[in-house]
Design a protein around this nucleic acid. Sequence first.
DNA 1: TAATCATTGTAATTAGCTCTCAATTGCAAT
DNA 2: ATTGCAATTGAGAGCTAATTACAATGATTA
Lengths: 146, 146
Amino acid sequence: MITAEDKFRNYLKMKGLKFTPERKMILKTVLSLHTHFDVDQLYERLRKENSDISRATIYRTFPLLIDSGIMKETLLCRDKTKYEHIFGHKHHDHIICLKCGRVIEFRDEEIERLQKAVCKKYGFKPVEHKLGIRGYCRECQSKMGE
Amino acid sequence: MITAEDKFRNYLKMKGLKFTPERKMILKTVLSLHTHFDVDQLYERLRKENSDISRATIYRTFPLLIDSGIMKETLLCRDKTKYEHIFGHKHHDHIICLKCGRVIEFRDEEIERLQKAVCKKYGFKPVEHKLGIRGYCRECQSKMGE
DNA sequence: TAATCATTGTAATTAGCTCTCAATTGCAAT
DNA sequence: ATTGCAATTGAGAGCTAATTACAATGATTA
């Protein structure tokens, strides 16, 4: 069973980069977050863990985590860029409430299949895709009805 | 037959806002662009048309054009925010080449239908959605193969 | 005509992110 | 274990897209 750390180490070695304590700590913390987060949220979390890793290092480490397939950007981003770790998770898409900000994750095999079919039609080789649906959740609809 | 200008005028009146020469010119220019564009590209285009509308006014007008349903942000945005006008166009999704930047637009009724079904399942009322597939186009694949 | 309020351009500001630089540190070769 | 060197780090400067304050202008209504 390969761990996320193994995966990251292998990636770094392959690129001739180093597995530093900072990168180890950032990886560990990213994996501990089970929601979408931004750079500042990760920074705050690190401080709570008594780590004084700078924002610059976080900004520098994120592309590595993304390139190694451990983390990715989500398309929730209105202002700040949001991330989520994907190690050990299947790909999923997002439904986002415009009022309360709630995020519903879903996976639809049929949509996945159709996307592949579209790519094939155009001779396109897909690497990743993002699907986000914005609107209003059940609760906010009721509230707005009142 | 309602024109884009009618639509914009109605929207502005409804909001108690004015249809100024600047807004008219920005609208006209946005409609004349048939590709994805950013604020600077629009600004340059305006200058070529001998208009000296400021960037600030463009930034202030874009939310109005979006809110009135004439234009929208695309999710191509890596750095700058990109826009496209949607007046008179059906919704479509994007396939983006990571190498050459080419954009393929497509529309798949079945995917649209399945998205609605997913929303229904969660009691979610969709307003908009964005689907972007990134990867490599046919041409770039051949080049990379060589 | 006077009063009101939206709009504009200019210029300053904000905010997210990147870069520079000097000091430090993994890590491979010895 | 030691050495050499490229990679890495934090601090702070810098960059750039986007926003905002402000004073002048202009349209609309009373």
